Amino acid sequence: MAAAQGRLSDDADGTGGADTASLSAKDAAPPAFRAAVEALGAARLRPGIEIEPVRAPRRLAPYTYAMEATVVDGEDDLADGRLVLLHDPAGHDGWEGTFRLVTLVRAELEPEMAADPLLPDVCWSWLTGALEARGLTFGEASGTVTRAGSHHFGGLAQRPATSQIEIRASWSPREGAGGVPDTGAHLAGWCDLLCQTAGLPPTSPGDGSVVSLPQRRGPQTP
């Protein structure tokens, strides 16, 4: 599976560039954190998503767990991302609770789409809309949407220009019974966002009004 690019750190919106380290020791973690991690593993996700646990950043919270996912279509990777679960049993004023989810999502898109001035607003609405569509409540959502373009020169001049969208965000899932949020549902909502960014159509009839990015080009060779 292609790993999500980018790095996570302790900056204002919960995403940035810190070193990743080992997963928190789940056996020694509080029951609420263990239950939240188990719910992630039990989530039923849309076909075409390859997902696996990865080393989690340690500096963000006392207990952390991370997953990376790739949306695949045949041999093509359409989008990738990373989702990190944070837990601080003592609570965190900026979180409005003891849990926080942090994400990085990236995908390539056509240059004409990248030029749309409304694209960042639309992409941000995909995140909140994906969670709300599953009936999830959350607080303190924050983040950034970045679009970037690359032009090639010299020996790479024959390669077409490429554009990329990147969504970095964090939010606090509402904690339910026993102080445990429904992390499985949040993971499913996050995967909806990932698929939408990849340009895949919605899977349920109720999502027919959702607009996705057009399908991306296949990988370019030098």
Score class of each variant (00 low, 15 high):
209 S>E: 15
177 A>Q: 15
29 A>L: 05
32 A>N: 05
62 P>S: 00
95 W>M: 15
43 A>M: 06
210 V>W: 13
90 A>D: 15
151 H>V: 12
125 S>N: 14
23 L>G: 12
169 A>G: 01
198 A>L: 02
30 P>V: 04
168 R>N: 10
164 Q>Y: 01
60 L>D: 09
82 R>F: 07
28 A>G: 08
48 G>R: 05
6 G>E: 03
122 V>Y: 08
55 R>Q: 11
126 W>R: 12
67 M>S: 06
63 Y>S: 03
177 A>R: 15
105 V>C: 11
146 T>Y: 11
181 P>E: 11
108 E>M: 01
170 S>A: 13
7 R>C: 12
8 L>C: 07
222 P>M: 04
60 L>H: 08
153 F>E: 03
211 V>A: 13
183 T>C: 10
199 G>S: 00
2 A>H: 02
172 S>R: 06
174 R>Y: 07
56 A>D: 12
78 L>Q: 05
163 S>M: 01
222 P>N: 07
148 A>G: 12
4 A>G: 15
61 A>Y: 04
13 D>T: 09
4 A>W: 13
10 D>M: 14
16 G>P: 01
180 V>I: 13
51 I>D: 11
70 T>A: 13
57 P>M: 02
151 H>A: 10
162 T>D: 01
40 L>G: 08
35 A>F: 09
169 A>S: 03
189 G>T: 09
128 T>D: 15
159 R>T: 03
150 S>G: 05
177 A>K: 11
209 S>G: 15
18 A>R: 00
208 G>E: 14
197 T>S: 07
65 Y>K: 02
63 Y>G: 06
74 G>L: 08
38 E>S: 07
154 G>V: 11
198 A>R: 02
179 G>M: 06
207 D>A: 05
75 E>T: 14
195 C>H: 07
80 D>P: 00
133 A>V: 06
40 L>R: 03
67 M>Y: 11
52 E>M: 09
210 V>Q: 15
221 T>Y: 12
193 L>H: 07
197 T>L: 09
66 A>N: 07
87 H>K: 04
62 P>H: 00
22 S>C: 02
137 T>L: 13
87 H>W: 08
117 P>H: 09
85 L>D: 14
146 T>K: 15
142 S>C: 14
123 C>P: 01
54 V>M: 08
115 A>I: 00
19 D>A: 06
149 G>T: 12
155 G>M: 10
146 T>W: 11
106 R>C: 05
194 L>F: 13
189 G>N: 10
214 P>A: 07
55 R>A: 14
71 V>R: 05
116 D>N: 08
166 E>P: 00
77 D>E: 12
46 R>H: 06
12 A>D: 15
195 C>L: 09
192 D>L: 02
198 A>M: 01
51 I>R: 14
30 P>M: 06
153 F>R: 02
44 R>M: 05
162 T>C: 00
142 S>R: 15
98 T>H: 10
28 A>W: 04
179 G>Y: 11
131 L>Q: 13
173 P>L: 12
2 A>P: 12
202 P>Y: 05
40 L>W: 12
77 D>R: 02
101 L>R: 06
116 D>G: 01
207 D>E: 05
149 G>M: 09
77 D>N: 02
25 A>E: 10
124 W>S: 13
